[in-house]
Amino acid sequence: MEVRTIKVFTTVDNINLHTQVVDMSMTYGQQFGPTYLDGADVTKIKPHNSHEGKTFYVLPNDDTLRVEAFEYYHTTDPSFLGRYMSALNHTKKWKYPQVNGLTSIKWADNNCYLATALLTLQQIELKFNPPALQDAYYRARAGEAANFCALILAYCNKTVGELGDVRETMSYLFQHANLDSCKRVLNVVCKTCGQQQTTLKGVEAVMYMGTLSYEQFKKGVQIPCTCGKQATKYLVQQESPFVMMSAPPAQYELKHGTFTCASEYTGNYQCGHYKHITSKETLYCIDGALLTKSSEYKGPITDVFYKENSYTTTIK
């Protein structure tokens, strides 16, 4: 009895394709271990004539594949690729409408935090270190965002349907971005203890939790000093293409032309909904596939993004 075979390709990165001759009487799992086709788990399936010449994702289970996976995804987590594939199996079914010149995501599976993050990423200057993220990001900007969303979920250790947080998501993504040249110098002034300067680099240099107003941050924000008295913390120097200011959701007025974009969060910790506000020729609110415009805006804002380049204080 002759062994019926077909020729397929296996890959971990969709760049390096490895030619395989597979036995049609055995499952993919018996031949390769966990195997995925377009995100779908085909591990328990036997090869079919229609699979001839198709590319299958496999887990990096030998040295060659491990090197290829690390170079593309910059992670050695053995569960990463499987999590990416199972997320992709959902995100490829989502709709990605162009809204006001940006790629958004039609609401499904509690994905409003991903839509808000995706919209924000198209408006701030950011370059990702893992080629996987950078490639998928370019495709997302062009309207094909399924891979990018699935990668975000995998890097953030999230599953489809789980509630997510924009600030946490951005923080994970910033860790995989090139923020080497970003720098922030802060000064804390206390009447009792004097003053202390701190220099922050990388992710810490672009994120701040405690106030939404970048102007206020430049002037000074009140913080408790270690001595128990009130101290003032203010920005001395900022070198970065953008800054992200966050605070627990509270009524906040966004003035046209003073910011790049913002995240609105309605609801409580267990259950809520994100919308995205962007400042173009007027203010726009993007909620999944829905767009509304207004000249002014007041609502429960939790993150505001500002364009920056270089700032030095005039406070002496």
Rank of each mutant, 00 (worst) to 15 (best):
L119D: 02
L151V: 03
N309G: 10
Q98W: 00
L163D: 04
L119T: 02
A146W: 08
P248M: 08
L114N: 03
V188G: 00
N178T: 02
T120P: 00
D303M: 09
K95Q: 12
F259G: 03
L37V: 11
N178M: 07
N61Y: 14
A115Q: 02
Q222G: 11
C149A: 08
T76L: 13
P97F: 05
Y28I: 02
M85C: 06
R139P: 06
G288I: 02
Y155S: 03
L121I: 12
S171V: 08
C193I: 05
H256L: 15
A140M: 13
S240V: 04
K7D: 14
K127V: 12
G210I: 09
C112E: 01
H18S: 08
E168T: 07
Q195F: 08
S263E: 01
Y137I: 09
G220W: 02
T55A: 09
Q123C: 03
Y208T: 08
P131V: 04
K307N: 08
W107H: 08
V166R: 04
V3N: 13
M24L: 13
K127D: 14
S25V: 13
T35H: 15
H18E: 06
L179H: 01
T282C: 14
L114A: 05
A140L: 13
P97E: 10
P34D: 10
K280H: 02
G272N: 07
C271L: 13
V160D: 03
A289I: 10
V206F: 04
A140H: 00
T10R: 12
T260N: 00
D287V: 05
F148Y: 05
L81W: 02
N16D: 11
T292C: 10
T76C: 15
T103S: 03
Q222T: 10
S171T: 15
D63H: 11
Y84A: 03
V243S: 04
M170Y: 06
V221T: 07
T292G: 06
H176T: 02
C227A: 01
Q216K: 11
Y252R: 03
M245E: 03
S295C: 09
Q175T: 08
C225H: 07
R184W: 00
T159V: 13
K307W: 04
T11E: 08
A108C: 15
E264I: 15
Q122C: 06
F242N: 03
Q30L: 14
T199A: 15
P249K: 05
Y252P: 01
T35L: 13
P249G: 00
I301F: 00
V236M: 09
V188A: 00
Y284C: 14
A117Y: 01
T266G: 10
Y137E: 00
L186K: 07
E308S: 08
G164D: 05
A140G: 07
G164A: 03
P224R: 14
L151A: 01
M24R: 13
L283M: 08
V3R: 13
